[in-house]
């Protein structure tokens, strides 16, 4: 009995975004079907993975996470090189030192770091602020200027600070991360607002503020599935790649931080699976850019992606 394969007739596809410069540029998006349904449409680019690099030494990472970066945690350039060695597709440089409760670094200070990292590694850069909207509106323009023309991905722009960050991306030729909490409509609204400042949609990546496994995975999961089906059904304002900050969410969970015990098993295995499983679920929901922390997670997740990317009937 021949089963007639059901193929959806999608009317639109996700825009393709290029980050970085040839020959090291990374392409994401371009999908014309739901994730990994190769029988139905194209998925020209596999999801890509960036490892996180901080511009100051993290003080609350568990030992299993700092171990692979021993000796480089206080040196963003060396740390970034290490990430490249581990096989990351991109470097995600997080400018935590600018946080007013941390070192309150100035725009010039962080710009210098960004420049140094960009010069040291050839991988495309994602530059993420300190998470304080006001401060990010000050430091990201400086960071964007320091690597002007390098087609990096800057974030995170929110409804409250998107204007200056968008302007920087326009002037210095970067892409932007648009962040909104837990609601597909808010996410779409921000995309529209940024796009209406004349930054092309192909230069916006959507960040649905994912939660870790056990901490609201399902909210972002459904927002992403809705965004992807909306995009494929013709909603241009949602037809852009989605970025998932999986590492930062995973490594603050109890499950990743609790040491070996009988009830929950070994910490290393548990924590790695926590990070990878979180990422793997979001890959199924339509994520294109993943920010992880542990190099082993990177490897495991890449294996999963590779298997998923295999063409099949």
């Amino acid at each position: 009995m021949a089963v007639a394969i059901v193929k959806e007739r999608w009317t639109n596809k996700v825009l393709e975004m290029t980050i970085g410069q040839e020959p090291n540029a990374v392409k994401v998006g371009g999908d014309s079907t739901l994730p990994f349904l190769h029988f139905e449409g194209e998925m020209p680019n596999r999801p890509v993975v960036a490892l996180e690099v901080w511009d100051m030494e993290p003080d609350n990472w568990p030992a299993i996470l700092t171990e692979p970066f021993k000796g480089v945690l206080d040196n963003p350039v060396a740390w970034a090189k290490k990430c490249a060695d581990y096989g990351a597709d991109m470097i995600c440089l997080r400018l935590n030192s600018a946080h007013p409760d941390q070192m309150d670094a100035t725009p010039d200070e962080v710009a210098a770091t960004v420049k140094a990292v960009a010069e040291a590694v050839s991988l495309p850069l994602i530059v993420v602020g300190c998470g304080v909207e006001e401060k990010d509106a000050l430091i990201l323009p400086a960071a964007g200027e320091a690597i002007s023309g390098q087609n990096a991905l800057l974030g995170c722009a929110t409804i409250n600070n998107y204007k200056t960050i968008t302007a920087t991306c326009m002037v210095h030729g970067h892409n932007i991360i648009a962040t909104s909490p837990l609601d597909i409509n808010l996410a779409k609204q921000l995309n529209i607002l940024i796009n209406e400042m004349n930054l092309p949609l192909s230069r916006i990546a959507m960040d649905p503020l994912v939660g870790a496994l056990g901490y609201g995975v399902e909210y972002a999961y459904s927002i992403m599935e809705r965004a992807r089906t909306g995009a494929l059904n013709g909603d241009k304002m949602l037809a852009i790649p989605m970025i998932c900050f999986v590492g930062q969410e995973t490594w603050k969970t109890k499950e990743a931080k609790t040491e070996d015990n009988e009830e929950w098993g070994a910490q290393a295995r548990r924590a790695l699976l926590w990070e990878v499983l979180t990422a793997a679920s979001f890959a199924q929901a339509g994520g294109s850019i993943f920010i992880l922390r542990h190099p082993e997670s990177l490897k495991l997740f890449n294996n999963n992606i590779a298997a998923m990317m295999k063409q099949n009937s």
Partner: peptide
């Protein structure tokens, strides 16, 4: 490791029953 990750994909994508050969809580809890 990959078996656990595969099982995660199946849980998300419509499987009624997932069979996985592990009794390690570090695998099953996630």
């Amino acid at each position: 490791f990959q078996a656990v990750i595969d099982a995660g994909v199946y849980i998300a994508k419509y499987a009624g029953i997932v069979v996985i050969d592990s009794v390690d809580p570090a695998d099953i809890l996630p």
